[in-house]
Design a protein around this nucleic acid. Structure first.
Length: 576
RNA sequence: GGGCACGUAGCUUAGCUCGGACUAAAGCGUCGGACUUCUAAUCCGAAUACCGUGGGUUCGAAUCCCACCGUGCUCGCCA
């Protein structure tokens, strides 16, 4: 529908311009404002006016006359309005929209294998809200790329070879549980983080000699990892896996799940990191200063150290090996990163390019952290709101809403306790996700409970409700009829069909630009179109062809909304 | 100080990548309406904006360029 329509417009307009002897490199195709019959329009006449030595509306008329739509399927006609050339849809366009079902928005396979790396938080403790944008945006980006026809793998890159984890391992072995506070929650990462925090405190308060001793032990852990010492891997691995196990449980609540947890030690153990270091040393940009190997990168004010003076690798060194592995295994790699990694991502890209990789296949999605009103969140300091707490509170508040609405509920479908629990969970968690995924990730967010858990506003329940309404209508219908689009004559029906038809275009654009929030914006447009239809066009109380066509339209809307929500990772309730 | 990002109604945002029907679109909040009709977590209406500021490019700028102001991030042999 929309994509084919756009292709037809591109073809016939370019042909028309060629025919009239105008350049056809920029077609000026855009979406007309609301209320126009046209699906797409062109403002090409403005640019050609001076060359043609005639006012834009005349040029528009000339072009419109030259456009030939005899061979098009979806483009029905060409009209002008002032300087604009408008392309209107055929009945086939609406017919296809009416026939949309389970595969709404799924684009043709690209054949590309894409790896989406997201979250990748150091396994030091519970996932907090400051970083919660990462799994939510990352999961949506992965879903989006899947809908856009790619084979997607979701990876969590585990920083298990850094100083932080060495310190954690040391603290875990050094301190006894009896000297720790009770865990905030009965789960491994909450139990484990106490050791990490205790270890961090130790470094702030212990005397110099004790700190030196501890430093030496941490250093020996790092050296052990670097040397490939099996016992050291096991010690660190025990801590990493325990914490990670709990974090996984938390992330699964969103739900954000992963195909693979890729540990950075893997690239130390298999020799890839050493191999990268050898090649880096050969580069013209490589310098050996102050006993450390560095890269003097163009456009970066600071050198990038890739081998410490004690011969150990750094995070970025291992990440280079990691990314070369990604390039071997996948056609494209997308990484969702906090804004504090922007510089590092730039250096990584530049260095990968120097190593002979095609970095066009690498893309980053950058988001800014969620802060508290009085500062940032930190696992080490224990400041911050745990994602678990936010989700719990969201469900509690959603449940209150459900229960308070039970009395004045019109529909007599008698929600039982299981329904109430389901709706509370779908709406509560959906609201948290939707709130985050619907905003541009580069904008800063300050966390406030009431704002994060606002069920009104332009929030998840608003669009979820549309899905529930669709399900309510279709509930007693045995088989959805195919429906005849010619029966749908009201402007509200047509407008809804247009929105449904547009969904694939939204997926296409959002996937290309890696901007899932466009899908969230779309769900609101779709919801508005549906609500207008719902108000004006009764379905079950009419009969014959009209009823069949409207039922088909409701089914098309339902599946479109369900899949749009699926991209966002928000559940689509069958009742609310 | 250098680099990057962000700045749109009282508040929260969309539109900005790729300038064009923008006389700027929504939600919340405020005010006023609509449930004997498929779920009112809905809908309809009113009021609210020098699109951070100043220049520039252009037939045309919220959108592109420059400067400035404000906010955040960043500039480790941390990750």
């Amino acid at each position: 529908m929309f994509i084919a329509f756009r292709e037809e417009v591109t073809t016939v307009l370019a042909d028309a311009l060629d025919d009239r002897g105008y350049p056809s490199d920029d077609l000026g195709i855009e979406r007309p404002p609301e209320g126009f019959d046209a699906v797409l329009a062109s403002s090409i006449s403005f640019g050609l006016a001076s060359e043609a030595e005639r006012p834009p509306p005349q040029v528009a008329g000339e072009i419109a006359d030259a456009v030939d739509v005899t061979d098009t399927t979806y483009v029905d006609g060409v009209t002008t309005q002032g300087p604009y050339v408008n392309f209107t849809p055929s009945e086939a366009y609406f017919e296809d929209a009416l026939a949309v079902r389970e595969d709404a928005g799924e684009l043709a396979a690209t054949g590309d294998a894409v790896v989406v790396e997201h979250t990748s938080a150091n396994p030091t403790g519970p996932v907090h809200v400051g970083r919660a944008r990462n799994p939510i945006i990352g999961d949506a980006v992965a879903n989006l790329l899947e809908y856009a026809g790619n084979d997607v793998e979701r990876h969590y890159y585990v920083n298990d070879a850094g100083r932080q984890m060495a310190l954690f391992t040391w603290a875990y072995e050094r301190f006894d549980e009896t000297e720790l506070p009770d865990p905030e929650r009965d789960r491994t990462e909450y139990e484990m983080v106490r050791y990490y925090r205790r270890g961090s405190e130790f470094f702030e308060s212990a005397d110099e000699r004790a700190v030196e001793t501890a430093e030496a032990e941490i250093e020996s852990i790092l050296q052990g990892l670097e040397a490939g010492d099996e016992a050291t891997y096991e010690r660190v691995g025990a801590v990493v896996d325990a914490v990670l196990g709990g974090m996984k449980t938390c992330l699964a609540r969103l739900p954000a799940t992963f195909d693979e947890f890729v540990k950075e030690t893997r690239f130390m153990r298999n020799g890839d990191t050493d191999e990268v270091i050898d090649r880096l040393k050969q580069l013209d940009e490589a310098v050996y200063e102050e006993d450390a190997w560095q890269l003097d990168l163009d456009g970066f004010e600071k050198n990038l150290v890739f081998l410490r003076s004690d011969d150990t690798s750094l995070y970025t060194t291992r990440d280079l090996a990691h990314h070369e592995w990604k390039f071997e295994e996948y056609d494209r790699a997308v990484t969702v990163l906090g804004e504090d990694h922007t510089l590092q991502a730039g250096q990584l890209r530049e260095t990968l390019e120097l190593l002979g990789n095609d970095t066009d296949q690498l893309a980053s999605v950058i988001y800014s952290y969620v802060d508290l009103p009085d500062g940032g969140m930190s696992t080490r300091a224990g400041t911050g709101v745990d994602l678990d707490d936010l989700l719990d509170e969201a469900i509690v508040r959603a449940r209150d809403e459900v229960e308070s609405r039970l009395d004045d509920r019109d529909r007599d479908d008698d929600l039982d306790e299981a329904d109430i629990e389901r709706i509370a969970r779908q709406v509560g968690i959906g609201a948290v996700r939707y709130d985050i995924v619907s905003k541009q990730p580069t904008k800063a967010i300050t966390f406030e409970w009431d704002r994060a858990l606002d069920f009104e506003a332009q929030s998840a329940p608003y669009v979820q409700y549309v899905h529930a309404r669709c399900c309510g209508i279709l509930d007693g219908v045995d088989a959805v009829p195919a429906g005849d689009v010619s029966a749908l004559t009201e402007p509200e029906s047509r407008e809804l069909l247009r929105e449904i038809a547009r969904f694939e275009g939204v997926i296409d654009a959002a996937a290309t630009e890696l901007r899932p929030h466009q899908v969230a914006t779309y769900t609101r447009d779709l919801a508005e179109a549906f609500n207008a239809f719902y108000r004006e066009c009764p379905v079950l109380s009419v009969e014959g062809e009209l009823r069949d066509a409207r039922l088909a339209l409701v089914a098309a809307a339902r599946h479109t909304m369900a899949n749009a929500l699926d991209v966002l990772g928000v559940e689509a309730p069958v009742s609310m």
